[in-house]
Design a protein around this nucleic acid. Structure first.
Lengths: 201, 201
DNA sequence: TGATGTTTTGACCAAGTGGTCAGATGTTGC
DNA sequence: GCAACATCTGACCACTTGGTCAAAACATCA
């Protein structure tokens, strides 16, 4: 069922993944139940299992799709651009992911929190390699005196931490800010300012 | 059973909470089972329920204890200290909590991720009030020109995000850094530098 | 020692879980 | 219209889950 052929397969697989994203991101893998997913998707439980062989398989499909989306912004950071603009753009794109795909962010957070049992391989491979590659670019920029010197990997961690916080801890952010705030707009301004200061050579 | 009297009650309640912290922080509330907790605690399941009336009750006890520890460092930020030193100390203490109490950090993260169903009241009350109070101090420091001007609440969010990241995403941090790194030592240096630059008037 | 209270446990339960399956119902192309 | 296939479902299953309970084992102290 990995490559839906008919219109109806397309539609139902999609609905299941959409529903599963809702449920998994809110409850974690073990906390989510097939009954919940089925209900949200508007299908019967046996029907879910007609499209996916198991709960595991749904989760896995979701994580696989997620990872690419998640890494894309970092992939786009290019050595030949303006250093500060490139980093700023990366940070902004990550913040937009947090804003527009908070369920994906939480799904990912849940997975890492629990020791990444299902995507450890990707973290230790793809992600690690990508960070190593981009770190080289950052170091080159530092050595050329175009941004301030610092640990490049922790610089990347800081972007992840600061942007994902607004998706993963959304509930807390909104509760603490109270009414009449636009968390993501404010975060955008704050993080722009922060990285301007941090990166200035 | 909230106030253990005998030696044995003291010891077993403690063992249960310790085991529950292990399991809840790693699996989330729904993902954790009483059998797992009982096994880690070295007790039988019915014996667990002799000390605590329900799974809920164990979780609740854990969260209640956690909250105070968690807020203490912020409470200690005093208006009459040196602004930069006070904020730096707060950041350092939060980082130390991440380092020495990662399970507590993850327990908290799990709870917030899932919409804080069990501590919403504390987030909207105690925590919100404390942040409001400390924000006033930060703003006063900004107006006195002793630290740079910025949104004080997002400044606090940034400290939470950057320090908790090293506990909650520990697996990712270690995987990406690879062998031969001391994540928390490096984070300490990086965050010192970051906040020096950010706060300088 | 025995009487009294505390702690522990095996056996049990009802509800919920992921998953199966035979067959019913739709859909499609001839 | 009908054969062939895709889709869907109710009934069911084995297992796990949180929780109960009566009785057993243990501790304490007169």
């Amino acid at each position: 069922m990995s490559r839906p052929k008919t219109r109806i397969q397309q539609k139902n697989s999609q609905a299941i993944l959409e529903a599963a994203l809702d449920v998994f991101s809110a409850q974690g893998f073990r906390g989510a139940t097939l009954d919940q997913i089925a209900e949200v998707a508007g299908l019967s439980k046996p029907n879910l299992l007609y499209y996916f062989p198991s709960k595991e398989a749904i989760h896995e499909t979701l994580l696989k799709r997620l990872l690419d989306t998640w890494l894309d912004p970092l992939r786009e950071m290019k050595a030949d651009g303006d250093p500060i603009a490139e980093i700023m753009t990366y940070m902004r794109k990550k913040l937009e992911l947090s804003q527009h795909y908070p369920r994906e962010s939480r799904l990912f957070a849940n997975e890492i929190l629990q020791g990444a049992p299902r995507i450890r391989f990707a973290i230790e491979g793809e992600l690690k390699d990508l960070v190593a590659e981009k770190s080289k670019i950052l170091v080159a920029w530092m050595e050329a005196g175009r941004i301030a010197r610092m640990d490049p990997v922790h610089l990347i961690f800081s972007i992840w931490a600061l942007t994902q916080h607004y998706a993963d801890f959304d509930m807390q952010v909104r509760a603490v800010l109270g009414e009449g705030h636009d968390p993501f707009a404010e975060a955008g301004g704050f993080l722009d300012m922060l990285y301007q200061k941090l990166l200035a050579p």
